[in-house]
Design a binder for these strands. Structure first.
Lengths: 342, 342
DNA sequence: ATTGACGTGAGGTACGTACCTCATTTAGAT
DNA sequence: ATCTAAATGAGGTACGTACCTCACGTCAAT
């Protein structure tokens, strides 16, 4: 009744333990017929390899690498913190984590860092970076080396990444749009859109989803063109101030990017702050405070802790060629308002 | 640099492996002074017991029990499904799961089931049940037997449960209230409240939170007294139909309990359905469809998968007297709308 | 019939921990 | 100083798996 072991398989397949071992670990030197017999026995008994025992025997250490930009956005800091936290409890699951930082918006430096990784010191890579041709090539190289790759937060769909850990950003944008429309309510107003960069796939997708919903369900609200701030506080401040001066019909501001500090600062000091619906992404100290102060109306977020743990689980599974539990790895689009802010 | 083992501790503490083992597993026969020496070495080296190796050596099997009502609510079914799903992948982590069902609203039967559990066939119990004096006693008995207990979904704060896995239901009610107020917007309207039972702590807490927010932020909206449906579809149907006939100022319905099937059915067929803001709890097939059909405006939910996995993690940890990673065990109050419904 | 390549079996050691037995040392009481 | 009980050491086996070596058997090509 207890779970079957390799010995049970050997017995029912009528072969020795060594042969079972060869089959399971895909070592050469076994006739196809014998492989089939062993496989049948595995199937029949419902054998599941005891990963913990295997890892013990093999002195397994998962050496994982997170690759992050040094963008001056609190979200990236939060991600970094989550990685650190995961690291401290990761001794328990044989996982060692390194963080590689590359200069924001410098794919060249990123590629250089990726080049330094090889299969004999790395068992998995989680990347949060924009998709450029160079990055694509670097990822292809890593894959060719047999290293599992997951994309983090912003997907890299045209690369050979094994998995994407993050939210559906189109749906996230739609969510923001729905709330913006419902919260503004009134007609004849307009919404300002602030993005980090139109290079970042996640930003573009969110904007797309936002526009879809606004067009479908709230056509009376005008959505203004995206303004890029490149995660620069000074730029943000200028853009927002100017806009609020120039157009008095602004009823909402949607911050698409990862940073909202400057935006919150400007709005906090502005006379019209009560009349503006503010929706941003990512729960950080800044957005948290803004929610608490009734300055911000909703934050669309993704749990960085989940993201990090999921990335590590997926990378470990890929590294062992194991399946993943899909339902556990779905990252939710969280809507955070003042009341469910814990 | 690799993680230290018991042997390393023995060496640095200047004792034998057997003594280290006695200390770690709290077996008797070691002088206090020696215990201190060993503890110091553990501290110094940052030793963390390899739980996987320990479980292997000890042939550990975690025998967990979930105790659930047979309430005819889809949420309970979803919970049951989540447990089944967790069970299938639980072979990997040495966990065996049993589900005990008790007749809804019959604490006597529940207590009888609990009485049958003992420490030599159970390593942990997760309970979803209302807190009654009998239940309190039964839990006290289990605790006296040394069995870890977690409360599921609805807290049992006046018992000796080790942990609560679920959301802050007052905050959940506040969340519902905030959205209800924002979505209704207009003045001079009223909101109907439907609860499962005023015995269920989670229902009461949600109602409380809802009232708080409505009073604070939306005083122009009248909140009607709670109507109990005892999870009975026929009762629900009657209550809702009558109310919609009698009062034409109903602008919103808040379904506090775990079941919303009958409510959705009634509203779906009603002529005023477009004019009513519907907010319910728990994402199930019914609420999912209602969201999709624009019949329901928001669902406040908690991820049953997370709940089950968290309960199992916590019970395993308690059973081993290990600490839990708080941040990983917090269950979020999820706001689900049409757009972030995946 | 001999050679050699390949397939397979038998048996071992190791991983980090649990748990057992038995011998020996130590401390405290007399 | 002697006795006794408690504390400790030494060494073993086991858990399920990985990985190694070596011997033996089989079969086809020569």
């Amino acid at each position: 009744m207890a779970r079957p072991t390799v010995n049970d398989i050997a017995k029912t397949a009528g072969v020795s333990l060594a042969t079972v071992d060869r089959v399971i670990n895909m070592r050469p030197g076994v006739r196809e017929k014998t492989v089939a017999r062993v496989s049948a026995a595995i199937e029949q008994l419902g054998y599941v390899r005891d990963v913990t025992a295997a890892n013990l025997a093999r002195q397994r250490l998962y050496r994982m690498v997170f690759v992050l930009p040094d963008a001056p956005a609190l979200f990236v800091d939060a991600l970094r913190d989550a990685i650190s936290e995961a690291t401290s409890s990761s001794i328990a699951d044989r996982t060692e984590v390194r963080i590689i930082t590359f200069p924001n918006g410098n794919p060249h430096a990123l590629v250089k860092s990726l080049r330094a990784l090889s299969a004999d010191d790395t068992d998995g890579v989680a990347i949060f970076a924009p998709e450029t041709p160079h990055v694509r090539d670097a990822i292809a190289r890593l894959k060719a080396d047999g290293i599992p790759i997951v994309a983090l937060v912003s997907d890299l769909p045209n690369t050979e990444r094994d998995h994407f850990v993050g939210i559906d950003n189109i749906a996230a944008g739609r969510t923001a749009g729905f709330l913006m429309g419902k919260f503004i309510g009134k007609t004849g107003s307009s919404v300002m859109i602030l993005v980090s960069s139109l290079q970042a796939r996640d930003n573009v997708e969110r904007r797309l989803g936002f526009d879809q919903v606004m067009a479908e369900s709230f056509p009376q609200i005008e959505v203004l063109p995206s303004l890029e701030n490149h995660d620069d506080d000074a730029v943000t401040e200028r853009l927002v101030s100017e806009m609020l001066e120039r157009r008095h019909d602004i009823a909402g501001i949607y911050s698409v990017g990862h940073g909202s500090r400057a935006l919150v600062d400007v709005v906090r000091e502005h006379e019209r702050r009560k009349g503006i619906t503010l929706i941003a992404h990512e729960l950080t100290q800044v957005t948290r405070e803004a929610l608490h102060d009734n300055l911000m109306d909703a934050v669309i977020s993704q749990d960085v802790g989940h993201i990090v743990r999921s990335a590590l689980r997926v990378l470990r599974a890929k590294s062992d060629r194991r399946d993943i539990v899909q339902s556990q790895e779905r990252i939710r689009i969280e809507i955070v308002i003042r009341e469910n802010l814990t």
